[in-house]
Write a protein that binds this DNA or RNA. Structure first.
Length: 125
DNA sequence: GCACTGACGCGGG
DNA sequence: TCCCGCGCCAGTG
């Protein structure tokens, strides 16, 4: 628990860095945190609200762009409505609501990744 | 310590 | 391209 505490602090910082109108994936966030295999922990953290309430959790989807659904949102389509409110187009599929990561995904630059590394270093987390 | 769980991801078919 | 199976790992009981 105490060992991954830094991971969650990092995840909170990364999530707050997701640009308005863009969607990020769990794996992408885990990668930026320095633990590429911890995608599930990102989902766990968001589900339990461990990253704080000022986190744009609606901007986080899975690797295929599928929205997580109900889980931690008031209503089923809350996540979709929030995304559409930011201009992110979502379409219905058999698996659920999906966004086009090619068009609205958060495509990290190397500079962004390094910037997060610096922040973690500065804050010793 | 053991078994099971889950807002997940990837590689093979 | 779509599915399915397997791997992953912190939490939980």
């Amino acid at each position: 628990m105490s060992q991954n505490f830094d991971f969650y602090k990092r995840a909170a910082i990364v999530c707050r860095g997701i640009p308005y109108g863009k969607a990020a994936t769990y794996g992408q966030i885990a990668l930026l945190c320095g633990k590429p295999k911890n995608a599930r922990q990102v989902g766990y953290a968001l589900n339990r609200g461990l990253l704080g309430l000022d986190i744009p959790a609606h901007r986080v989807v899975n690797a295929r762009g599928i929205l997580s659904g109900a889980a931690a949102f008031e209503t089923e389509d809350m996540q979709r409505l929030l995304l559409e409110g930011e201009g992110v187009r979502a379409g219905w599929t058999e698996k659920g609501w999906m966004v086009d990561l090619k068009a609205d995904g958060w495509h990290n630059t190397m500079e962004e990744a390094l910037r997060f590394r610096e922040i973690f270093e500065e804050q010793r987390i």
